[in-house]
Write a protein that binds this DNA or RNA. Structure first.
Length: 587
RNA sequence: GCGCCCGUAGCUCAGCUGGAUAGAGCAACGGACUUCUAAUCCGUAGGUCAUUGGUUCGAAUCCAAUCGGGCGUGCCA
């Protein structure tokens, strides 16, 4: 149990017995909130319960708080007092810190409690094949990977699925290009770039020339009809694309349990539409098969309604186009069915750009109407903008490829390594540059609130000062250095944690919050809260490092400080690991 | 038009279910390396939380309106 939970429980007991004695009835489902103190001068934790209850219980909040303060059983856990209009402030006692931290140090989960495990499917990254990943894929890939790691660490059963776009309309163009413009030599040396070149070349030709556009459409129709030559070309494209994608995923250390792309569901789409029709969930309209509103919501909240000319009209989800082809809506419905049936999903997370929110609102509404009980969540994120404040666009082909961005970040950290640690061996510098550079890119992404847009600024992303990955990695390095020095003297006797100095108390406070932060991160699908937490922790450690000598201290103080270092090291490593960021031993 | 998201320090952004004097980083200024790695630490300065009204003991946070920006809105994904 976390400190906050423990205090909350004790406060709740005091509250219930107080209410019973006075014949008062607590509001339905009320549980005493305890949160970290807003201002550390007041204590470590605080509760506003008395003020929240003043009105429903018709009592004076200060008086209620006083009664609770007087009657709480804290058993040496914390001191408690009353302030202002009824704040209840807790200050954890030194002995309690010692006991908590000791337990945390011995806990493989570092104080993170057990949860009721759920089957969580996480759908992320999902690039189109036949095109290399670009900066726009950073968000989904990194957020999704981090949430997967966090959910697993919390004890959930997580299934990750890369729902690649391997059946889109782009294949019309790619196949046309393959047949007419292919450079065999280039395909051998750098297949992904060659596919991209074909796509771009045909795309610009098709813009100019209707005949070429038609030819592309024709290739696509042939592919979808199972034309053997086109299917062969398609297979090759997917194959080489996957190799290219995997190179980047390996580099980023991102793994998927499955790669069930759009093509995987092809065979299920026809029958699915028939089912939707027979269920009464879909009907024909203007030549297409559509799903309309279930009329369960007010029109302005209904994803299937739209106000046009002062009148609410239908905005259906099209599951079969009038030309008979299916679209991504159809595939997504099939995908939900599959994940529910095959993976017994309790929860499905879609880590997808916020611009698709209408699509998901419709998709989830349909799923619910068809009896889906799982929690479906569009974990949306904002757009990556160019320096002009406008979205980076795929079409113009100008936006940087992901691999180039990663290379730039690695090169920037390599340069700093050269300046700061020039005497390290070359191969180690190379390795470190990779760890630090990629860490920076990931941390930049994860420290932003996901719903806000952000401007893609390579210099910023690669900046290695301030609130960045290297700051966190550096704190880890400083700890490692202490233990290296210690080994040389080899007089480490693990001891009780006994904290005294302000910097030690603050470090303890941060350390023990690890288990409080992670569940909140998953609840809101917000890795940035973890990023903030780790920055707080690293700051606390750096301050401690400056204020409290470790190796130069003696006896119990020394072994206690070593234990603090050990725990900090573990939490930093684990926390960064949950963001997919590695830690170096030196830098 | 309608719907969704956003507006916080010069810049980039935090701010968990409403809580005490709104916080970081960068940039600026001033200090700290013969002492566990200065990619660090300590300090100073910087604010009408877009505007107005409402809800209440208490609002950056909730509600409404307005202004400004972005996105979406029937056969692309």
């Amino acid at each position: 149990m976390t400190l906050a939970q423990e205090l909350s429980q004790r406060l709740q007991q005091a509250l219930e017995s107080h209410a019973a004695a006075k014949g008062l009835e607590l509001p339905e489902g009320f549980s005493a909130p305890v949160s970290t103190a807003a201002d550390l001068r007041f204590g470590d934790y605080q509760s506003n319960a008395a003020m929240m209850l003043a009105k429903p219980l018709r009592c004076n909040p200060r008086q209620l708080a006083q009664e609770l303060v007087d009657s709480m059983q804290l058993d040496g856990l914390a001191s408690v007092d009353l302030a202002g209009p009824g704040f209840i402030n807790f200050r954890v006692l030194p002995a309690a810190w010692s006991q908590r931290l000791q337990a945390q140090l011995n806990d493989p989960k570092l104080g993170v409690g057990q949860v009721e495990p759920r089957n969580i499917v996480i759908d992320f990254s999902a690039p189109n094949v036949a095109k290399p990943m670009h900066v726009g894929h950073i968000r989904s890939t990194i957020i999704g990977d981090s949430l997967s790691r966090i959910a697993r660490f919390l004890g959930h059963h997580v299934t990750t699925d890369n729902h690649i776009g391997d059946w889109g309309t782009q294949f019309g163009m790619v196949i046309y290009g393959w047949k007419n413009l292919l450079d065999e030599q280039a395909l051998k040396s750098d297949p992904l770039q060659e596919l991209l070149r074909l796509y771009r070349a045909v795309n610009s030709l098709a813009k100019e020339d209707e005949a070429i556009k038609d030819a592309c459409r024709n290739e696509l129709v042939k592919l979808q009809a199972g034309d053997s030559e086109n299917v062969e070309i398609w297979k090759k494209c997917v194959e080489v694309s996957k190799i290219g994608l995997n190179r980047i995923y390996d580099r980023l250390n991102v793994r998927f349990d499955h790669w069930l792309g759009e093509s995987y569901y092809n065979d299920q789409l026809g029958p699915l539409v028939e089912t939707l029709l027979s269920e009464g969930n879909a009907k024909e309209s203007e030549g297409a098969i559509c799903v309309f509103s279930g009329d369960l919501l007010e029109p302005n909240k209904d994803p299937f309604k739209e106000k046009r000319d002062d009148e609410w009209s239908d905005l259906p989800m099209i599951v079969r186009k009038k030309d008979g082809a299916f679209n991504y809506a159809t595939t997504d419905i099939a995908t939900v069915d599959y994940r529910l049936k095959e993976w017994q999903a309790d929860e499905i997370l879609y880590i997808v750009d916020a611009r698709q929110s209408l699509h998901f609102r419709q998709l989830f509404d349909i799923a619910e109407r068809r009896g889906c009980k799982a929690k479906l969540e569009h974990v949306s994120f904002g757009t990556i903008l160019g320096k002009d404040g406008k979205p980076l666009k795929t079409r113009d082909g100008d936006l940087p490829q992901l691999d180039d961005v990663l290379n730039d970040a690695v090169a920037a950290s390599r340069q700093i390594l050269e300046e700061k640690s020039g005497d390290l061996p070359e191969d180690e510098k190379e390795q470190l540059a990779e760890i630090i550079g990629l860490g920076s890119v990931k941390f930049t992404e994860l420290s932003h609130h996901r719903s806000s847009d952000y401007i893609f600024d390579l210099e910023k992303m690669v900046a290695l000062q301030g609130d960045t990955a290297p700051y966190l990695q550096y704190s880890y390095v400083r700890i490692s250095s202490i233990f290296r020095k210690l080994d040389e003297g080899s007089d480490y006797t693990p001891g009780e944690i006994a904290i005294e100095a302000d910097a030690e108390i603050h470090l303890a406070r941060c350390l023990s919050r690890f288990g409080e932060v992670l569940p909140v991160v998953l609840e809101g699908y917000r890795p940035n809260l973890l990023a903030i937490y780790l920055l707080d922790l690293a700051k606390a450690f750096h301050s401690f490092f400056e204020a409290c000598p470790v190796l130069k201290s003696e006896g119990e103080v020394k072994s206690s400080r070593l234990a603090l270092c050990e725990l900090t090291r573990k939490v930093l490593e684990q926390g960064l690991g949950l963001m997919g960021i590695q830690v170096p031993e030196r830098m």
